[in-house]
């Protein structure tokens, strides 16, 4: 465990909790893509099946349970509790266009052809693109609430910190996981355009809105 990995995990935690609190406090999930959140729930579910088979550390297990719980709570709030505020009309990205190819790829390119390993690989690939419906929704509506942009920034920062963690681990531990690294690069690149807007607009006190 190095400092980049830890801050990456914490950044991920901040993102998840920020989104949950935003929805809870405003009693609304307007501007949030339910499809992205369902995919994140699917990501955590398929990745953390090893909670039952492979104990790593109390930290690891606790974080997994928190991520899973928060992720399901978010989906519950969007599709059940605050369903009326869900912006379904703007959440039009076709999730099957991501899930099906990613599932196929997980079958073809994995470390080991076993059910758990294929599901883990699927979760890594799916996570890398799961934010697309959310980014697509922002492009479609042309704006995002500031708190939503903080959520996205923390979520993007998490994977960027993981990239530094992987460089660190390669040099100091000789460890690398090519599947995670390639997918992590893709995931981080998807946020670049957003990072630019966040830094040039949101951090200067402006609302994130795109030119019409």
């Amino acid at each position: 465990m190095n400092v980049f990995r830890l801050t990456g995990d914490l950044s991920h935690l901040v993102a998840i909790i920020l989104l949950l609190l935003k929805i809870w406090k405003t009693r609304s999930c307007a501007g949030i893509s339910g499809k992205s959140q369902v995919m994140f729930a699917l990501v955590f579910t398929t990745r953390y099946l090893d909670l039952f088979t492979n104990f790593i550390s109390p930290y690891n297990s606790v974080m997994k349970v928190i991520y899973l719980g928060c992720s399901y709570a978010t989906v519950y709030m969007i599709y059940m509790k605050f369903k009326a505020s869900y912006d379904g009309n703007h959440d039009t990205f076709r999730a099957e266009f991501l899930i099906i190819p990613v599932g196929g790829l997980a079958f073809l390119v994995n470390h080991e052809f076993t059910p758990l390993e294929i599901l883990w690989t699927f979760s890594i690939y799916l996570e890398s693109v799961a934010i697309l419906p959310q980014l697509f929704m922002i492009t479609k509506t042309g704006e995002a609430e500031t708190i939503t942009t903080h959520y996205l920034f923390a979520l993007g920062l998490y994977r960027a910190l993981y990239l530094i963690n992987w460089i660190w681990r390669y040099y100091f531990e000789g460890f690398f996981d090519l599947i995670a690294i390639v997918a992590g690069c893709v995931q981080t690149i998807l946020y670049c355009d957003f990072f630019y807007l966040y830094i040039t607009k949101v951090l200067h006190g402006k609302k994130l809105s795109l030119p019409a």
């Binding site: 995990d9 990745r47 090893d50 492979n54 790593i56 974080m63 991520y67 076993t114």
Partner: peptide, 10 residues
């Protein structure tokens, strides 16, 4: 050599 199926990251 990396250990397979020992995914210690989150």
């Amino acid at each position: 050599k990396q250990l397979l199926q020992n995914h210690d990251e989150l």
